[in-house]
C-alpha cells in the first residue's frame, strides 16, 4: 500500500527524534571515562549510578518526589472531578472566565508563584513539609488534570448513566460500573499528565521546600559538574514517566 509509506516514514522520524537523545543519555550514564577526542567512551562502568544512588539523600529525594506526585495527582483528580464534569457537560453559560482562573497558575512562573507562597507557608508551618509540597504542586497539577479530564465527560456518559438509573442502579453502582469505566481512558491520561507535572516541578519545590530533597533539585547541580551522574539521575527521572506512559496507552487501547 503506497499511501501508508509516508506515514511510516513520519513515525520513524518521530521515533528517532525521541530515541537518539535517549540513547545518548544511556551511553553517557554508563561512560566512566569519555575523554574529548574519543567518539565512544573509553571505559564503561557504574560510577554514575554509585554516586547518584549511593547516598541516603537520593533515596529520600526519590521517595519524597514519588509521595508528593502521587498525593498531588490523587488530590487533583478528586478536586478536579466535579469541575471537569461541569465544564465537560457544558453546563456553564460562561465557561471562559472559569478556564482563565483555572489557567492562571500556568501563566505565572512556578518559582514566582512558589516564592509568593513561601512566606505564608512559613507562617502556617507548611514550609518544607510534605503537605506543603503537595499543596503547592496541586496548584500546577490541577489545571492540567481538569483540562484533560473534562474531555471525558459529555452526553455519551450522561446518557449511559441515565440508562443505568432506569435499570435499577443506585448512585454507587452507577459510579463504579458505568461512570468510571466510561471515563477510564481520560482519567488515565489526566493522572499521567498530573503525575509528570508534579514529578518535574523545580521552581515551586525549591521555593517552599526549605531544603527538602526532591529529584529535580538534587539532579540539577550535577548537570554542570558531573554529566555522568546527571545522566544516571535523568534515567531514573524518566523511569516513572515511561512506566506511566505504558500504563496509559494500555488503558487507552482497552475498550472505553
Amino acid at each position: 500500500m503506497p499511501d501508508r509509506r509516508p506515514s511510516r516514514l513520519v513515525a520513524a522520524a518521530v521515533a528517532a527524534a525521541f530515541a537518539v537523545p535517549l540513547g545518548a543519555l544511556v551511553v553517557r550514564a554508563f561512560a566512566d571515562a569519555w575523554r574529548a577526542p574519543g567518539l565512544v567512551p573509553q571505559r564503561f562502568g557504574l560510577r554514575g549510578f554509585d554516586i547518584a544512588f549511593g547516598g541516603a539523600r537520593a533515596a529520600e529525594a526519590l521517595t519524597i518526589s514519588l509521595v508528593v506526585a502521587v498525593a498531588a495527582t490523587s488530590l487533583a483528580l478528586l478536586v478536579g472531578w466535579p469541575a471537569a464534569r461541569v465544564l465537560g457537560e457544558r453546563r456553564l453559560r460562561h465557561p471562559a472566565p472559569v478556564f482563565l482562573i483555572l489557567a492562571l497558575p500556568l501563566l505565572v512562573p512556578p518559582y514566582a508563584a512558589g516564592f509568593g507562597l513561601s512566606e505564608w507557608f512559613i507562617r502556617l508551618g507548611l514550609s518544607g513539609t510534605i503537605p506543603g509540597l503537595v499543596l503547592v504542586h496541586l496548584l500546577f497539577v490541577l489545571p492540567y488534570v481538569i483540562v484533560v479530564l473534562l474531555s471525558g465527560f459529555g452526553p455519551q456518559v450522561t446518557s449511559l448513566e441515565e440508562m443505568a438509573q432506569t435499570y435499577g442502579a443506585g448512585p454507587g453502582h452507577r459510579f463504579a460500573r458505568v461512570t468510571l469505566p466510561s471515563v477510564a481512558p481520560t482519567l488515565g491520561a489526566a493522572a499521567l499528565l498530573g503525575f509528570l507535572v508534579s514529578w518535574s516541578q523545580y521552581g515551586s519545590s525549591l521555593a517552599v521546600g526549605a531544603g527538602r530533597p526532591m529529584l529535580p533539585l538534587v539532579m540539577l547541580p550535577f548537570v554542570n559538574t558531573d554529566p555522568q551522574t546527571a545522566a544516571a539521575f535523568a534515567l531514573l527521572f524518566l523511569l516513572p514517566a515511561v512506566a506511566a506512559l505504558l500504563v496509559a496507552t494500555r488503558l487507552a487501547r482497552s475498550p472505553l
Binding site: M163, Q165, A169, G170, P255
Partner: peptide, 29 residues
C-alpha cells in the same frame, strides 16, 4: 428516584455499555 421506579426505558439510541459483552449488557439490570 429513577432506580426504584421499576420503569424500563429503551431509548432512541441503544445506550449499551461498550466495556461489557452483549450478554452482560442484557444482564445489567
Amino acid at each position: 428516584p429513577s432506580h426504584r421506579r421499576q420503569v424500563a426505558v429503551v431509548f432512541q439510541e441503544p445506550r449499551l455499555l461498550p466495556h461489557l459483552s452483549v450478554v452482560d449488557n442484557v444482564a445489567f439490570p
